[in-house]
């Protein structure tokens, strides 16, 4: 005789819905996963409906003796015994060609992040796919980044107007920190293309890596700068004269105010700090 297949429920979703009729479960029918005319989807003709993701439910839906604990559904149940990798395998069974390859190359599987840690299936609008609610999902694990975004000068995550996936690819990629473009600068310049140049007079660190001066998740300092000018600039510039002079508190407005320190500091004059396309702009003043 042939081998017996997995023990599925008798009538599929109809069996499941005879008990699981709460609104939060039924919200699956407001999602792409529950389109009966999608032949590839769990509810397409001939597909396994709820058990496509949750696994064979025969035991779970079967009769239990009085006092016997009902066996858990195999996947995506708090009492289930499936490992993270096995549960992710349920998702990747369909989504492998889309996200699986990058996923395996990224850092999330190393940390045993489950697809269901971030994605909610039984909800019409998955919070991690909405700009306003996505950062909170990511910050559950990425606490240091949440801390930075709460600093006074940050991209508008707290206002719900920017999401992490504008810059990062959470399903993994081969770029450091899973950026959506090939380099840090390519990523920043999606929105800040005016800084791209290439300029006649380039500022070397700008051409190389925006994060040499900026803290992109947030900073105590305006412009998300890593440090206050002029000290930030003086970390690299030591030319004789005003670049190498220490500007102290006696040069605030309460003393002898210095244009090298106050207002925009170095940028009062060297305003083209990202580069200049002016023939006389080698000092980034034109």
């Amino acid at each position: 005789g042939g081998q017996e297949g997995p023990d599925y429920s008798r009538e599929g979703a109809d069996t499941c819905l005879s008990c699981h009729e709460d609104a939060s479960t039924l919200a699956i029918f407001r999602t792409k996963h529950a389109v009966p005319s999608d032949p590839r989807g769990p509810f397409g003709h001939g597909q396994l409906q709820c058990e496509a993701c949750h696994g064979p439910g025969g035991e779970h839906a079967g009769r239990v003796r009085r006092g016997q604990e009902r066996p858990a559904i195999p996947y995506f149940h708090p009492a289930g015994t499936a490992t993270v990798e096995e549960e992710n395998g349920q998702c990747l069974g369909c989504h492998n060609s889309g996200v699986g390859f990058g996923w395996h190359a990224g850092e999330h599987p190393v940390d045993e992040v489950a697809c269901a840690d971030c994605h909610q299936m039984h909800i019409a609008r998955d919070p991690v796919l909405q700009t306003a609610t996505q950062p909170a999902v990511c910050f559950d694990c990425h606490q240091a980044q949440r801390t930075e975004t709460r600093k006074a000068f940050a991209h508008p995550f707290s206002q719900g107007k920017m999401d992490c996936t504008g810059c990062h690819s959470p399903h993994g990629d081969q770029v450091a920190t899973s950026l959506v473009r090939q380099t840090v600068n390519d990523t920043c310049q999606q929105c800040h293309a005016e800084q791209r140049g290439p300029y006649l007079w380039e500022h070397a660190p700008v051409s190389e890596d925006c994060t040499l001066c900026h803290s992109p998740h947030g900073s105590n300092h305006p412009g998300m700068l890593a440090k206050r000018a002029p000290l930030l600039c003086q970390s690299c510039h030591s030319q004789f004269g005003h670049p190498s002079i220490p500007y102290g508190p006696d040069e605030l407005v309460t003393g002898t105010p210095s244009r090298f320190l106050l207002g925009q500091s170095c940028l009062n004059c060297h305003s083209q700090v990202h580069g200049s396309n002016h023939p006389s702009g080698s000092k980034l003043m034109r």
Partner: peptide, 14 residues
């Protein structure tokens, strides 16, 4: 046989 499962009680959106 799971091939003929049809969900009569599934509240698909229309």
């Amino acid at each position: 046989d799971t091939s003929d499962w049809a969900c009569e009680y599934c509240p698909f959106q229309q």
